[in-house]
Design a protein around this nucleic acid. Sequence first.
RNA 1: GGGGCUGUGGGGUAGCCUGGUUAGCCUCAGAGGUUUGGGACCUCUUGACCCCGGUUCAAAUCCGGGCAGCCCCA
Length: 482
Amino acid sequence: METKSSQGLSVKKSEDFSKWFSEIIEKSDIVDLRLDIKGFMVFCPWGATILERIFRLFSDELERKGHKQTFMPTVIPEENLKKESSHIAGFTPEVFWLKEINKEKLALRPTSETLYTPMFKLWVRSHRDIPLKLYQRGSVFRLDTKATRPLIRTREILWIEAHDAFATKAQAEAQVQEDIQITEEIMHKKLGIPFLPMKRPSWDKFAGAEYTIGSDVMMPDGKLIQQPSTHLMGQKFSKAFNATFKNEKGKEEFLWTTAYGPAMSRILASVIAMHGDDKGLVLPSSVSPVSIVIVPILRKENKELVIKEANKIKEKIQELGLKVELDISEKSPGEKFHIWELRGVPIRLEIGENELKAKELTLSLRTSDKKEKIKISELKKLHTIIDKYDQDLVKKADNSLKGKILDAKNKKEVLEILDKGCIARVNFCSTDEQGAKCAGIVEKEMNAEVRGTMANKKESASGNCLICGKKASEIIYIGRSY
RNA sequence: GGGGCUGUGGGGUAGCCUGGUUAGCCUCAGAGGUUUGGGACCUCUUGACCCCGGUUCAAAUCCGGGCAGCCCCA
């Protein structure tokens, strides 16, 4: 397949992150941007396989937590979309409208609350039917902005959306916390991407939600990117759709609903940005299409023998349950090394004459320049080596966030912190509508955003709002974002 | 939302200002051969001016529009 992987990267990550990112996503065969449909992406096999693995991490975790898979239509009738007033108000500018069919206007779904809630109405009749925890994988479409960016800001979003229905507000809020736990399990523990769970200010919540908690991840340039967000919809949608259930006393009540949405390509963008280096991608084994690549070192006179032995090694590794590939293409060994490093495979094994004699393979970790040896009789150790490789990625990522959140007392300090590529932690008047004016000033004067309050721990303000000087009610975080 | 820059074989580019020969270079790809321990070499070959319109004897080059990308500002 003819992609752009034939050449290495021309810029360093530390020198021009933006250019590095644009280059790496094409050269490591993640995407091919040449189809040129603004905001829409072609994923190459390598990139698509990684996406698929991220999808599975989330769907497996959701199912462990009691969610069941569904598939909803890709289109939404205008009537449904309009039912909840703040929802349609928020999404109207972003909707791709299809043509009218039988006098009914259809929208490409921008999100699926208005498909799930009418089904909740049908599927939930008594308290015995809840909690009902559902999810689907698929695309949603948002005619967002002209400023699209590959993987990060797209008009077709490949994601999972979970929609849950409960009997009480407390249960729904517990689900929101569980969603943050799911994000922790996958984003942080599996993919090595630390995040800040931020309860968004009311002016920045999901259209139709009571409140929204977004996961902010810091990119290497210091800018924040929103990863999976979870929303307490409360009874707004259930009231709009008249979705009720009979409680234990036989009385009709409205459902309490939540929604959770991890976007795969955006998560992939964070994986690339967090771990990648000047040689290319660095993938956690949980998402790498292969964990181990075997490169045979061939000579004319030993070619058949080495390939035969390499195949045996491959089978042994497969029996260990590891994903392995043997590269017998005609390229020179050096070129193969570069290509597999560009693609981010965690472990490379070399096998040639020397290895056959010594009964041990040469092993290189993607994250190290050293070459080590591993005895052919001790291939089981590969499990431990991969586990340590993954843990090291998490540790390194955690360290990258250390010292990046700094307290500030006034505007000047906030600006200094932002210019250093860090996040400012400040006293703020309010995250309700009264605070919107101050947030506007933050946006205008600092080119930054009020990201919200910490969602998983209580922090109480002690001073005055750094913008208006009134008594502060919250500690909030200010950052620049994608 | 406003502004700027850009678009040349699969990838990267020169040429454009000042219109005029067969559109140059690197790389990749295909065929054949020699090779293979960190991007091997030789021979031959295919392949391009983003799209639509305008000006002109003549457009990659100038003008208008579209599409797409990158950057800056709100």
